[in-house]
Design a protein around this nucleic acid. Structure first.
Lengths: 193, 193
DNA sequence: CTCTTTTTGGAACGAACTGTCAATTTCGCT
DNA sequence: AGCGAAATTGACAGTTCGTTCCAAAAAGAG
């Protein structure tokens, strides 16, 4: 017994996520969002709450649509080719002029928002944990399958890869030198041999 | 034949840099700056120009007082220990709860400001070039001195280190797990052996 | 001491900010 | 058909933003 929503909340959240992704938290105003989402101001507040809550929901939406680590790394068979594909995926997104400037929303959030918002900081750290865990279990499996030398430490290697991936995203945001990140990615992969 | 300034512009710029470093560009208002610098609004504008110009000057001030790559890496004698010290310095600053949340102003700038300001982007990229060059020449010297295996590529290794260092700064901003970055740093250094 | 130049604190500017509210519209249901 | 509940609309507060302006004060040069 109510009026139906005129807009699709899912599509609106997607657009909000893209705007936050491109411009950052502080530089994106509620008026910008109202304009780009094509919905009324009050509808925005009624559906998503204030700016901070909307950002948190946009952040989660980003994670849902992001790189599928588990799907990529948990496939049966050899592990290292999957890790190579993962690194190359990050490399492409970090060097392509169309996608590099926006970087990764998690990195952007870690840098701009997390230091001033404990809730956000926890979410970001959970993501680091998640990626690290996915890489660790993949490398552990690789070691069991003989793809990784016996002396290597899967968790330590996962932590190096995690750090390199985020570093690539940062440098890609302000550099149009693909060779730089290509070399870094290649050297990072060579650690696994 | 004129009045002298009542405040020390150098000290004021230092304080402005610290405020931008801690809060970011957008989240720091001119009123915040006036308050923390202890000088009048008009003096701020007359001395440093507008907000953007002040930020650019603060950025340069940060670079002047930052890690002395050349001084660290150009000392005569073995190179690898110096590189190890450099990585450990980054590790400490990225894991110490007192310094980790503010991260590195260059990284913060690369993420928040560079994508929307070509001038800033150029400055940031110049910094990546500078660090990469310093590391490359150091590793080249290490190779000549037999510290680095003959098969290694100094520039590619420098690019990996550059990426790892920036990645550490990002993860350190939102993680209080020192072991994570310690492992990453250790594995990165192991690449040189 | 006077003139000139600069600094200074604070008021004031228009614009933009986040968030709210009453009025209106549209649906489901009796 | 008409009633109640939810959603839209547009305007509206109350701040805060970056920036400018101005009168008063201060300090070196003659």
């Amino acid at each position: 017994m109510a009026r139906t929503k005129e807009f699709d909340p899912d599509a609106a959240l997607q657009k909000a996520m893209e705007l936050f992704w491109e411009r950052g938290y502080e530089a994106t105003s509620m008026s910008d969002l109202v304009e780009h989402l094509g919905i009324g101001r009050a509808s925005l507040y009624a559906t998503f709450g204030g700016k901070r809550e909307l950002y948190l929901k946009a952040y989660e939406r980003y994670l849902e649509n992001g790189v599928d680590f588990v799907g990529l790394l948990s496939q049966p068979g050899p592990v290292l080719p999957a890790i190579r594909r993962l690194v190359e995926l990050y490399l492409e997104e970090s060097t392509d002029p169309a996608t590099a400037p926006r970087g990764c929303l998690v990195v952007n959030t870690a840098v701009e928002v997390a230091p001033h918002d404990p809730v956000v900081a926890r979410r970001v750290e959970q993501n680091w944990d998640f990626v690290e865990t996915a890489l660790t279990s993949a490398l552990t499996r690789a070691k069991a399958q003989g793809e990784l030398p016996a002396g290597k430490d899967p968790r330590a290697l996962a932590r190096l890869l995690l750090t390199v991936l985020q570093g690539m995203r940062v440098i890609g945001k302000s550099s149009d030198n693909p060779a730089r990140l290509r070399d870094a990615a290649e050297q990072a992969l060579r650690v696994l041999e």
